[in-house]
Amino acid sequence: MTAATTQQPPVSRDPMVPRPFRVVASHLDTDDTVTLSLEPMGSDPLVFAPGQFTMLHAFGVGEVPISICGDPTRPDPLMHTIRDVGNVTHALVSAEVGAVVGVRGPYGTGWRPGDGVGGDLLMVAGGIGLAPLRPALLEVASRRDEYDRVVLLYGARSPADILFEDDLRRWADECRIEVAVTVDYAPPEWDGRVGPVTTLVGRAGFDPPRTLALVCGPEIMMTLTANALLGRGVAPHRMRLSMERNMKCGAGLCGHCQLREFFLCVDGPVLPYSQLAPLLDVREL
């Protein structure tokens, strides 16, 4: 019996049911940030594009969106760098090796660094925002010759909060990526830069009209960076930002992540600044 009603919606796999993954490694990056390596239990590795995220579920606690931070060409184990800021993230960073977490995804749009091939690629990261950019950096490092200048500007709160120091060194020393790190506050023994990451934009070595800029960090950091990039002459549609909003599904179904016409979990999180600028200017949109 089939009733020909409005439409026959397709019956398919439920996007709200997670797959179990086992924690195979847990690395303490800083005093509040942990990188978890996860292996699927009886299912395929989760193939992803740089910039995409998953919904990570901690048993009995809840579920949150977390970007994938590993190498897109080696999705097994699946890596997430998580900062302990509340209930669910606390449960996740506390997960011990052997524990099981639920994974849904991958979701959202990616950075698509390849759109910058043939020109300069600039990445600007603030705080935990380096984690979502890491897959793009790994991809670019493996195809370094396809780009002209590749620049990473990274701002952290203090020297103790700097993530992925080994990567930063390797990218700079072996991959011809110009890496500039700055911190907002430092003890006197810090021999690097002090000042917000936005101050690095002014003199960084990239050619604005030929640059694709990928920006990730707190919203205020991203809008200030976009302003600084505008000042240097990078076109708004050549800047991409990764947006954070409350997300309950990741699948375009729960409504929470809406920013006017965008479902940031599906249309984003990565969107061109040309589309975001008019929306970010309006308070509480």
Partner: peptide, 13 residues
């Protein structure tokens, strides 16, 4: 501007 941004403690708790 830079000082104001630092004051925000953007990446702080």
């Amino acid at each position: 501007q830079a000082a104001r941004v630092q004051m925000l403690d953007m990446y702080g708790a």
